[in-house]
C-alpha cells in the first residue's frame, strides 16, 4: 500500500536555539497614549541602560512586529541575553513620567508558538 505523504513536517531541535521570541504588551493607566515603533524600542533600550549600563544598551534585539493600537510587539533576542532583556523589561515602570507596565504574554524559542495562546484559546 502506498503511503500518503504526511501533511506536516516534523522538526526536532536538539540544541538550545539561537533566538528566543517574546510577545509583550505595554499597558498605561490612561488609554490614550500612543507610541511609534521607534519610541517603543527606545523605551526598552532605556530600560536596559538603566539596569545594565552601556553594555546592556548595546544588546542586539529586534522588534519584529509592533501593533500601534494595542501596543503589543514581538521581540527577537539572542538566547544568551534573554534573562537580561526580560528583567530590564520587568523593571520598566514609567514612560515620559507616565506610569506604565510591560506584560509578557509569551516567551518561546519558536516564533510559530506565538501565533496562538493556549491559555486564551477557545475550543469550539
Amino acid at each position: 500500500m502506498e503511503k500518503k505523504p504526511t501533511p506536516y513536517e516534523r522538526v526536532v531541535c536538539k540544541n538550545t536555539s539561537l533566538y528566543h521570541y517574546m510577545k509583550i504588551n505595554l499597558v498605561f493607566d490612561s488609554r490614550n497614549k500612543s507610541l511609534s515603533a521607534e519610541q517603543f524600542k527606545q523605551l526598552i533600550i532605556t530600560g536596559l541602560k538603566d539596569l545594565y549600563g552601556e553594555v546592556g544598551a548595546a544588546f542586539p534585539f529586534d522588534v519584529l512586529t509592533f501593533n500601534q493600537t494595542e501596543l503589543s510587539a514581538i521581540l527577537r533576542v539572542y538566547h544568551s541575553s534573554l534573562v537580561k532583556l526580560w528583567s530590564a523589561i520587568t523593571l520598566i515602570g514609567s514612560y515620559e513620567s507616565v506610569s506604565c507596565a510591560f506584560r509578557v504574554t509569551q516567551v518561546s524559542p519558536f516564533l510559530l508558538a506565538l501565533s496562538g495562546n493556549s491559555r486564551e484559546m477557545e475550543v469550539f
Binding site: V83, K84, S87, T90, L91, S99, A101, V104
Partner: peptide, 18 residues
C-alpha cells in the same frame, strides 16, 4: 499600591535570577 506596580509571576521568576 497600584495595578501597574504588579508584574506577572514568570517575570518575577526571571527577576529572581538577577
Amino acid at each position: 499600591e497600584a495595578p501597574l506596580n504588579l508584574r506577572g509571576p514568570y517575570d518575577i521568576a526571571n527577576l529572581g535570577l538577577i
